[in-house]
Write a protein that binds this DNA or RNA. Sequence first.
DNA 1: CGCCAGGGCCTCA
DNA 2: TGAGGCCATGGC
Length: 250
Amino acid sequence: MAHRDKSITGIYERLSDCYGRQYWWPLFRQGASVYEPVPRPLHRSPEHQWEIALGALLTQNTAWANVEKALDNLAARGGWDPSRLLSLGLDELAQEIRSAGTHHQKARKIKAFLEAFPEADLSVLKDMSLEVARQSLLTVWGIGPETADSILLYALGRPVFVVDAYTRRIFSRLGLIQGGTYEEIQARFHDELDPEPLLFQEYHALIVRHAKLSCRSKARCRDCILAEICEFPSFNPLSVDQDIKKASQI
DNA sequence: CGCCAGGGCCTCA
DNA sequence: TGAGGCCATGGC
């Protein structure tokens, strides 16, 4: 009966039961992202914190595979130590992360981050309230709500729910939201879930997983594990999915 | 080919 | 304060 529970908690349980643990945030090791519980405690080392923040900036509106290429290229050229990246010119840095897309902007964002947090040291945020820490991140050029929350949740283990385009797509198709600002949607999750960082981390990762597998831009409703509670588009498990419907219109 | 990808900034009503 | 344009590479 859990798979018919159309609540935020019920949907988490369904996703979690079907997909299992996701082990986010992926760390980049030896040319590949690692989705395994390598020492991956809630409290990350400063190096991991920086890697997560860097990844969060690079992955803005970008497929993770392209971020991997950028990280791989950085690694091949001497790594992504804050000191090295700061020593590069803006255009030089942009070229090294070119494969991540919007690379001139992202180079500027990386520099802005390192100027706001010298040595990528985020420990100054540790003693701040969640709201104040979030605000100080949002002050930095290039850090918006999702990037700020990703850093807070995955690098610092703070209980903030990350809302991304996938969250909007999945939950609007389910019929649980319709529009709304970032903070409004986030509040829905904060209201219903216990503020557990590991829960928030897994939930967001599961949303990304589900959006990539089934709830794509062109929805693949055939094998969707949320089909029985979804309203997209007037969906029921026996109806054809979007691809077939489109093909039969010709 | 066109669309899309783990957004955010800037501009203009 | 909200919608729309812009950034831009790489995979499908």
